[in-house]
Amino acid sequence: MAASPANVPQMHPDPADFQDPAYREAVVDLLAAISYGEISAFERLAEDSKMAPVIRDKVALASMASAELGHVARLHERIAELGADPFEAMAPFIEPIEKFHRHTAPSDWHEGLVKAYVGDGLAADFYREIAAYLDAATRDLVIASLEDAGQADFVVDRIRQAILAQPSLAGRLALWGRRLMGEALTQAQRVAAERESLSALLAGGIDRPGLDLASIGRMFTRITERHAERMSHLGLAS
Rank of each mutant, 00 (worst) to 15 (best):
109 W>A: 05
67 A>S: 15
135 D>V: 03
131 A>R: 12
79 I>T: 04
75 L>S: 04
133 Y>G: 14
93 F>G: 05
88 E>A: 09
122 L>N: 01
129 E>V: 05
108 D>C: 05
101 H>R: 14
105 A>N: 06
127 Y>F: 15
90 M>S: 02
85 D>I: 00
124 A>W: 08
119 G>C: 09
138 T>D: 13
69 L>S: 12
85 D>V: 01
97 I>L: 14
105 A>L: 06
86 P>A: 03
90 M>G: 01
98 E>M: 13
118 V>I: 15
138 T>M: 04
102 R>P: 08
71 H>S: 14
84 A>L: 00
113 L>Q: 05
72 V>R: 07
128 R>E: 15
94 I>N: 00
86 P>D: 06
81 E>W: 11
100 F>T: 07
110 H>S: 03
102 R>I: 02
112 G>Y: 13
129 E>H: 11
129 E>A: 14
119 G>W: 13
130 I>D: 02
100 F>H: 15
131 A>D: 13
94 I>F: 04
98 E>A: 10
110 H>P: 00
112 G>V: 13
102 R>F: 05
82 L>Y: 04
72 V>H: 07
81 E>G: 05
115 K>A: 08
113 L>Y: 02
103 H>V: 02
80 A>R: 09
127 Y>D: 14
82 L>R: 03
91 A>H: 03
73 A>D: 11
107 S>W: 00
90 M>D: 02
134 L>H: 09
76 H>I: 00
134 L>V: 09
137 A>Q: 14
104 T>I: 10
104 T>Q: 03
97 I>E: 15
89 A>F: 00
94 I>K: 04
125 D>T: 01
76 H>L: 02
80 A>T: 02
108 D>I: 01
71 H>W: 06
87 F>M: 01
135 D>F: 07
115 K>S: 08
114 V>Y: 07
93 F>I: 08
67 A>H: 15
82 L>M: 03
108 D>G: 11
85 D>R: 03
95 E>D: 15
134 L>P: 10
138 T>Y: 00
78 R>A: 06
72 V>F: 07
134 L>Y: 06
98 E>H: 12
133 Y>A: 15
114 V>K: 05
79 I>E: 06
84 A>N: 00
131 A>Y: 12
136 A>W: 13
136 A>M: 12
104 T>N: 11
71 H>K: 12
99 K>V: 01
86 P>R: 04
69 L>K: 13
71 H>C: 09
125 D>S: 10
135 D>Y: 08
72 V>S: 07
112 G>R: 13
125 D>I: 01
133 Y>Q: 15
125 D>W: 02
